[in-house]
């Protein structure tokens, strides 16, 4: 029972991280139709940025968010303007290959800059609570709260603000939005900026729970893809649900299948993903765009 309770708590904590990690991906795919294969690398960039502030400036990792969010926003804005904007009206293969190229570029640049040695941040918040023999780490709890808060903020931004309306209009019909005077280029750049800022913030949360290395991005991208195909594009509550489900699969497989660890979680995820895509090409909750026709 304790084991089950612990696994459940771990799954919820991990799910919170996944949810924040995935919404940037989902937002960018939903609004721009770009499947960003460099997504995981942006998480890693956020994590390295956090590590840098922690190690060389001595800030608490959570405080580093103050730097991470604006810097990552600027980076996302720039990448969209320079690169993604050029390929946005082309078929998905082009953006897929270009963002894959970007992923390689980022991962190897990180390796040059920080070497391949895994890095970890230090935090004063390393304590934990115990509730009925179940350990609840303070850091992961803050992680979860922050993730939920940022998702709520994004949701408010999209539904309540003028910018949010412009983003949704651009997502629904690019040409029509252009015709009613929405400056589509800058809306997309801001959207990409927001998506990458959230992704970078997820990197901060990542740095607090796992060692940071240049090449840990790809599995994160794959998870983001899996969750988004399950939950539909740009669907925030769906993303939260999908993230929790995926985290539960990974944690419970890791807990109850002996000698496996969490590594095979990704395998389980992909088996589930392929089965879902074959049986329900429109995604588990609908809203997934068809690949052709």
């Amino acid at each position: 029972m304790t084991e089950f309770g612990q696994a459940l708590v771990n799954a919820i904590m991990l799910g919170g991280f996944y949810a924040l990690m995935v919404i940037g991906f989902s937002l960018i795919w939903g609004v721009m139709g770009v499947i960003n294969l460099a997504h995981g690398e942006f998480v890693v960039v956020g994590a390295y940025l956090t590590w840098f502030m922690n190690r060389h400036v001595g800030w608490e990792p959570f405080v580093a968010l103050v730097v991470v969010i604006p810097v990552m926003f600027a980076l996302g804005y720039l990448v969209q303007r320079v690169l993604i904007n050029r390929i946005i009206d082309r078929p998905p293969l082009v953006s897929l290959l270009v963002t894959y190229g970007l992923a390689i570029l980022i991962a190897n640049s990180l390796k040059l800059a920080f070497t391949g040695t895994p890095r970890s941040v230090t935090t004063a918040l390393s304590g934990f609570w115990r509730v009925a023999d179940v350990t609840i780490p303070v850091v992961k709890t803050i992680d979860l709260m922050l993730a939920l808060a940022m998702m709520a903020a994004l949701s408010l931004l999209l539904t309540r603000s003028r910018l949010g309306k412009a983003i949704r209009a651009a997502a629904q019909n690019r040409r029509a939005a252009r015709m009613v005077g929405i400056e589509i280029g800058s809306v997309f750049a801001v959207t990409f900026g927001i998506g990458i800022a959230l992704t970078g913030a997820a990197g901060t949360l990542f740095s607090l729970t796992q060692p940071i290395a240049p090449f840990v991005g790809l599995p994160l991208t794959l998870r983001a893809f899996a969750i988004t195909t399950m939950s539909g594009l740009g669907n925030i509550s769906g993303a939260l649900f999908g993230s929790m489900a995926l985290a539960a699969v990974e944690v419970f497989v890791g807990t109850y299948v002996p000698g496996v660890g969490t590594n095979l979680g990704l395998v389980a995820t992909f088996v589930v993903l392929v089965v879902i895509l074959i049986t329900r090409p429109q995604g588990l909750f609908g809203g997934l765009p068809p690949a052709e026709e």
Binding site: P92, L222, F225, T229, G261, L264, L266, L273, A291
Partner: peptide, 28 residues
């Protein structure tokens, strides 16, 4: 037989996942 029912990017990424999964299996 499974993945080639998928179209376009879904096939591509399913294969990316297959590759990553095999790497994890080799590790485990």
């Amino acid at each position: 037989r499974a993945t080639m029912h998928l179209k376009g990017p879904y096939f591509s990424i399913a294969m990316l996942g297959t590759f990553a999964a095999l790497r994890e299996i080799a590790r485990v």
